[in-house]
Amino acid sequence: MIEINDVTLRYKNIKNNNLSPNVLEDISFSLKPRERCVVIGPSGCGKSSLLYILAGLLSPTKGSVYINQKKVTGPRDEVALILQDHGLFPWKTVYDNAELGLLLKKVDKETRQRKVLELLKRLDLIDHIDKYPTQLSGGQRQRVAIARALAQRPQILLMDEPFSALDALTRERLQDTLLELWLDKELTYILVTHSIEEAVFLGEKIIVLSPQPGKVIKIFDNSTSGSRLYRKTQDFYANCNYLRDLLEGEVK
């Protein structure tokens, strides 16, 4: 479903057209439908850039990305992106923010209303639909961002450190919510994070990247994850430790 082939990224300096050193180097992996993928790596390893490439917001210098056998050349309807700072617009209410994706696609008003209200209900935001983002807590804002992304019924959900600014309990609650949504919305997701616990809890396939340039050090199969209870199992701790060692070895 998603195929990433030898993706290398270098930034171009606008002033003199010089290329930066490699930000990402020869990244290759593929994902099946409904796979839960987490990309983890230290700060500055280019993991957010990788996500922007998948979202069609950035072109790789070399290599290619295919989604549903079609080469990615720009943003696509079947892909939704959630940003670290949630990307909500302060001048739009919760409802208007959640509706934005559908509005831009010129979906008719009734369909928009039905889909958006259903999701806002599901995400416990129904009592806040007329509020503005500044009136919400961090967790609520991130849930609005999730509602906006899911309202478009994407097949693929891309998330750039979506829960990193939240306190521990709110973060875990949202991770649970994400798992629930994954269970009943036929989703494939790719989440970028620097949190080891988050990676192990949410990732069925964990792509470990090295620091500058970002290269795949390991594709880690974590198929026992996928339920809320996993967080309290021995397996979870063991895998966290394994991943920590892997990352520490690379950072040294």
């Binding site: 069609g56 943003p75 696509r76 940003l83 990307g87 617009f89 994706g101 831009l104 696609k105």
Partner: peptide, 8 residues
């Protein structure tokens, strides 16, 4: 980036 990802 937030709005561009919605293909506007």
């Amino acid at each position: 980036q937030a709005i561009r990802s919605l293909n506007p």
